[in-house]
Design a protein around this nucleic acid. Structure first.
Lengths: 107, 107
DNA sequence: TATATTTGCAACCATATAGTTGCGTATTAA
DNA sequence: TTAATACGCAACTATATGGTTGCAAATATA
């Protein structure tokens, strides 16, 4: 199908998916799907689709217990993104917040 | 339209675009569009579309000189991705290459 | 046992995306 | 001046994506 890194990047490229992932990361406990979908404006099925994408990227794991399916985040795949980024670090300048950032945001 | 970080992530989520960006990053000189498209199997117009997406994300800049348009990379927007990642670093484990990575890749 | 809750599956829809081809135009070279 | 080169624009196609709804099945509760 596609690259692992591509799968991960596509997963986090969607803002809703990033929100879901974030909610799961900061949640102290694993959350069942309905409870997740209650936090969003889109339908449960919409959420389920996003969860599948996140699961496919390894960013969440789903645990079935009875009729409920508990989701918890796994940030490890992001290490791959971090590694991809690392190479380009030598090509960007300074720390965040310096002049070049200011100039970048002008355009 | 959409978030800056979303625009950047979507730009790099496509493998072809990552390749183009990489080629421009490692090129010592700015490259005209035709020369870029010669390095790929897709049409010049296909490349042009990708270049526009990259430009929209601020990852490249295009300089017109005569009939040619020279493209050069700008890695700075990746700092934003780096910053987004940073928060999740506390939730992943160890250095790259340790046991948990091995386990991540098993699934 | 009857009912309510949590979920998956499938079908469907609209739009975005990755790609193509054809054609016109500006610039450079012969 | 003619021909070749580099490019943008527009139209088009196929498929992916983000979202919906309806329905059936499994599990939990009354």
């Amino acid at each position: 199908m596609q690259d692992r890194i591509t799968t991960i990047l596509k997963a986090v490229a969607d803002p809703t998916r990033r929100e879901i992932f974030h909610a799961l990361v900061v949640a102290t406990t694993a959350l069942p799907i309905t409870q997740i979908s209650n936090q969003f404006d889109i339908s449960r099925q919409g959420i389920t689709k996003h969860l599948k994408t996140l699961e496919g990227a390894g960013l969440i794991h789903i645990d079935t217990k009875g009729r409920e399916r508990f989701c918890h985040a796994n940030a490890n795949p992001l290490k791959e993104v971090n590694q991809w980024l690392k190479f380009y670090e030598q090509f960007w300048d300074g720390a965040l917040g310096d002049l070049s950032d200011y100039l970048d945001n002008m355009s």
